[in-house]
């Protein structure tokens, strides 16, 4: 509820923020081509801490605007992408990174898909003999043919 009120507050207040966001993009024009590309990929890769699932690039929240400005400032200061991401991680933790770090608590996240692929392959591998056997279902085995012949003979 509390957070709900906070979010409502942000929505109500977002209009002035929107203008400022445009200013930041105007600032981004001042970056050279390579920096601009990095700026855009960084703000796309960082999640707005106020919003649940919007990147810094897509959010009008005040904190997103401030963090975009921070990314911009650090780019101009000659910081590397890794340094900028580390700066954000130190302050906002795992939440801010759309690409989570590889560590114990994210192990399942990273290896889960591979694990499921492994399980699928295992199941498939175990099913193959069964599938092969099924293809012969239309034909009777020698035993079955003998029994069928016997039954037919009896019926006559």
């Amino acid at each position: 509820m509390v957070a709900g009120v906070m979010v409502t507050g942000v929505i109500l207040l977002k209009t002035p923020g929107a203008d400022a966001a445009i200013d930041v993009y105007a600032e981004a024009q001042a970056l050279d081509g390579e920096q601009k590309a990095r700026y855009e990929s960084l703000i796309d890769e960082l999640r707005c801490p106020q919003c649940l699932n919007i990147s810094l690039a897509g959010s009008d929240a005040m904190i997103a605007r401030d963090l975009r400005r921070e990314v911009h400032r650090m780019l101009l200061a000659g910081k590397s992408d890794a340094e900028i991401l580390e700066f954000m991680y130190q302050r906002y933790g795992d939440f801010i990174l759309y690409r989570p770090r590889f560590k114990l608590s994210t192990l399942l996240l990273w290896l889960g898909p591979l694990m499921f692929l492994g399980i699928a392959l295992l199941v498939l591998w175990r099913m193959i003999p069964g599938l092969r056997a099924q293809t012969d279902h239309t034909r009777l085995s020698r035993d079955q043919q003998t029994r069928l012949d016997a039954l037919l003979k009896k019926a006559e």
Binding site: G9, P49, Q50, M62, E70, Y92, G93
Partner: peptide, 13 residues
């Protein structure tokens, strides 16, 4: 007023 300390504190609202 620039929100710089707030960013260092990981504040988001």
């Amino acid at each position: 007023d620039a929100g710089s300390l707030a960013i260092d504190l990981g504040v988001y609202g």
